[in-house]
């Protein structure tokens, strides 16, 4: 048995070079996805370890109110960040429900995006908040709208030699409401049956903006385009909530698996989105 290769780059440039030099090695960060299956699989040929790589860590405000989160930033830092609490409260809420303390201390946003599981809790939030993923490779840096990032069951737009550098969340309109709900089997440390995130904005009694991200109802995290279309332009209230729920029934075909059944998933997602619409219909409470 040959030993696993190991390199710990000190910069993004070094990490990109390491990936180019070792095309068959994997990127390792908090290891909370990769090490879970380690006992069942052959060891990787080698790892490029980006855990705690300074250039990949941290949460900062960038151009005009957007928030940039380094890929190697652990969930714990997202949970405790005042900037995230102010700008992207539903990302903090989702982060707080990812695993428990030990997982939040190690698991990172880049790892959640990298694994791209249909039950990755932050992913519907990134859809609802219209996030962008920043990727680096020997060809330079490119930005991909998060909406285009997941391409299928655990497949993504990431090229074989690319590194996830950061996630950027654009400034939301100050009047927009952010909503999040995870439904699982127990309050902590449970994988979701479904999750839903939304950004909804009302002006003069009508919805003028609606983005809904859903998890665990398709092979990848998805936007609920049909429900969004039913909401935008419609007046606040029950009728729009019902229309959104009906649109979900038309556009979703969830599966039955060990965690839940297709009918339960559909009914629950409909109910959660109905409540989002009703909540955004009522004047915002001073919180």
């Amino acid at each position: 048995m040959t030993a696993t290769g190991y390199v710990r780059p000190a910069s993004i440039a070094e990490a990109v070079a390491a990936r180019a030099a070792h095309p068959d090695w994997i990127v390792l960060c908090g290891a909370t996805d990769l090490m879970v299956e380690a006992p069942l699989r052959p060891a990787p040929v080698g790892v490029v370890d980006v855990w705690a790589l300074a250039e990949l860590c941290g949460i900062a405000e960038v151009d005009g109110g957007a928030v940039r989160i380094g890929a190697a930033t652990p969930w714990r830092d997202v949970v405790t960040s005042p900037l995230i609490a102010a700008r992207a409260p539903i990302l903090a809420a989702a982060a707080r429900e990812i695993g428990a303390l030990q997982i939040q201390a190690r698991g990172t946003i880049g790892g959640n995006v990298g694994t791209s599981s249909p039950v990755g809790d932050s992913l519907p939030v990134l859809l609802a908040l219209d996030a962008t993923v920043e990727l680096a490779s020997p060809r330079g840096t490119r930005r991909v709208p998060y909406r285009d990032y997941p391409t299928g069951y655990r497949t993504t737009a990431l090229a074989a030699d690319e590194l996830i550098v950061a996630i950027t969340i654009p400034a939301a309109h100050p009047g927009a409401r952010q909503l999040w709900r995870k439904v699982g089997t127990r309050r902590a440390q449970s994988i979701s049956k479904i999750m839903a995130a939304a950004l909804l904005r009302v002006e003069a009694g009508r919805f003028v903006e609606a983005r809904i991200g859903l998890g665990a109802v398709a092979n990848r995290p998805i936007r609920a385009a049909g429900a969004e279309a039913a909401i935008v332009g419609a007046p606040v209230g029950e009728a729009t909530a019902d229309a959104a729920a009906a649109a979900l029934a038309a556009e979703l075909t969830p599966i039955t698996d060990v965690r839940s059944t297709a009918p339960y998933r559909l009914a629950t997602v409909q109910q959660v989105v109905r409540r989002f619409v009703l909540e955004a219909s009522s004047p915002s409470s001073p919180d």
Partner: peptide, 17 residues
């Protein structure tokens, strides 16, 4: 690990150097 509570079953030895 560097003061943060982590599960030792999910840390690779190389990461501890």
């Amino acid at each position: 690990l560097d003061g943060a509570p982590v599960n030792a079953c999910l840390v690779a030895a190389g990461q501890c150097h």
